[in-house]
Amino acid sequence: METGVIFAGFGGQGILLAGKVLARAGMDQGLEVTWLPSYGPEMRGGTANCTVILADEPVGSPIVDAPRALVALNGPSLDRFEPKVAPGGAVVVNSSLVPRPVRRKDVREIPVPVNDIARELGEPRTINMVALGAAVRALGILPLQAVIQAMVEELGERGRKRLVEVNREALARGYAEAGRFLA
């Protein structure tokens, strides 16, 4: 069983880190994981995405044709990756920035206003963790607690107490938000 997740957005939205936290959480839970980034030569801006694979057997190719979940933090990312999502898969859309709904009817749309939520939390940079929290709920294969732990590990020495706390809140808010759209 192999689960692919694509995180995509503008450079600077933190999507690479969001994917890394998910992959690390999977590794900590004993899964085989890969995390592969894709970005352009720009120092900032541009678009970026990363692919996470969580599997119970060693992963071959680190790219996926049909992700079980997509996290799209901007419009171009939704346009580009929506067609690839596996039927029945989840699409977490940043409804703060993306003006359109998901077009496909065979995927589960989870609109989360991540910019608004992050602003409410007083730390706009946590949009990636809000989105990740929603994705974790939609995937349903890793406990939120494992993802929180991986976030703390990933922030490492940079993770001062306040940062860890606000990112924990962000993950929890995203997780709760997604629950509204999932049975």
Binding site: A23, E32, T34, W35, P37, V59
Partner: peptide, 9 residues
């Protein structure tokens, strides 16, 4: 680049 940038165990 892929082996270089890919995170794994």
């Amino acid at each position: 680049e892929v082996v270089g940038h890919m995170y794994e165990r």
